[in-house]
């Protein structure tokens, strides 16, 4: 079976042939399977946002291909439009894209563009609103009356309502307080469980990535430094550090304990670390 999404040797150069030429991505390849949760990690300005805009065909690769179910999305116009709906892209600070008179209308914008019937549009919009925890009252308000966190949820609901096969989120929790972050991640997880959607989220928080993703892709200077399960990636802590990325705090605790002669397995979430340490104590 072909993978849901495959990226092959993707290279992107901004403004080629001018003094402003800048290589943002070079030779990036990876693939995403059905209902996988993948985190893309990297420092700011390292090509993460450029990468995700290729996934639904908004940017055109300088070279390389993006395939959905094995078909190149740039091979014809119909496929390119289909890619827009197959890959739901939530941009950074998505609250700045709201424009409609009411929250409900704004959430319905995407499904409407897909050419769905009014009933289906409404059904999806209501479901998406419910998933992100918006109340009935909120739906008839103007999106500009809402608080920042609520606006963010409306914007995410606008993409969820399109029921994409692959949901891509660019730093969905940027600028939110810890509670807001937890909520947003919770909504995404709920949605994913319900619809069996694959999710890619971009983050620079190692903790978020370690706790929520099954696979990690580490971008550094526009190319993939490493990819694999969190376990495989955080095993190579030294490499991550030399790329200026760091590892989750928990990993640091474990490696500090190891350097003091305690034999411990790698763990990258607080829960796993606790059980690893408990296990070691029981053993002694």
């Amino acid at each position: 079976m072909t993978d849901l999404l495959t990226v092959e040797n993707l290279t992107h150069i901004y403004s080629p042939g001018t003094p402003f030429e800048k290589k943002a991505l070079s030779d990036v390849s990876f693939s995403i399977g059905e209902s996988e949760m993948t985190a893309v990690i990297g420092q700011t300005g390292r090509g993460k946002s450029t990468l995700i805009q290729h996934l639904n065909g908004i940017l055109k690769p300088t070279s390389g291909r993006v395939l959905i179910h094995g078909e190149d999305i740039r091979s014809d116009k119909r496929l390119l439009r289909a890619a827009r709906f197959a890959v739901g892209l939530v941009f950074q600070y998505p609250e700045y894209q709201l424009f409609e008179e009411t929250v409900l209308k704004d959430i319905s914008f995407g499904p409407k563009n897909m050419g769905l019937s009014n009933e289906e549009t409404e059904r999806r919009a209501l479901e998406a609103a419910q998933i992100v925890g918006l109340s009935e009252d909120d739906l008839s308000k103007s999106p500009f009356e809402l608080s920042g966190g609520q606006k963010r949820r409306v914007a995410i609901a606008g993409i969820l309502a399109m029921e994409p096969q692959l949901l891509v989120l660019d730093e969905p929790t940027a600028g939110l307080d810890p509670r807001g972050r937890e909520q947003i991640i919770g909504y995404i997880k709920n949605y994913r469980e319900k619809h069996r959607t694959s999710v890619i989220f971009v983050t620079h928080s190692m903790e978020d990535a370690a706790e929520n993703a099954q696979r990690l892709i580490v971008l550094h200077r526009g190319s993939i430094l490493m990819q694999g399960t969190p376990f495989e990636v955080f095993e190579r802590a030294e490499e991550l550090k030399s790329a200026g990325l760091g590892v989750p705090k928990v990993c640091e605790v474990i490696s500090e304990l190891r350097s003091r002669g305690i034999n411990l397995k790698t763990a990258f979430t607080p829960e796993a670390a606790a059980s690893v340490i408990k296990g070691a104590r029981a053993r002694d």
Binding site: Q53, N56, I58, R81, R84, F85, G88, L89, V90, F91, P94, Y96, Q97, F109, G110, N113, M114, G158, I159, M162
Partner: peptide
Amino acid sequence: DETNKITSAQKARGAD
């Protein structure tokens, strides 16, 4: 810059 971002965001929502 902002226009580009918003345009991309609306395109991602299927704006034609």
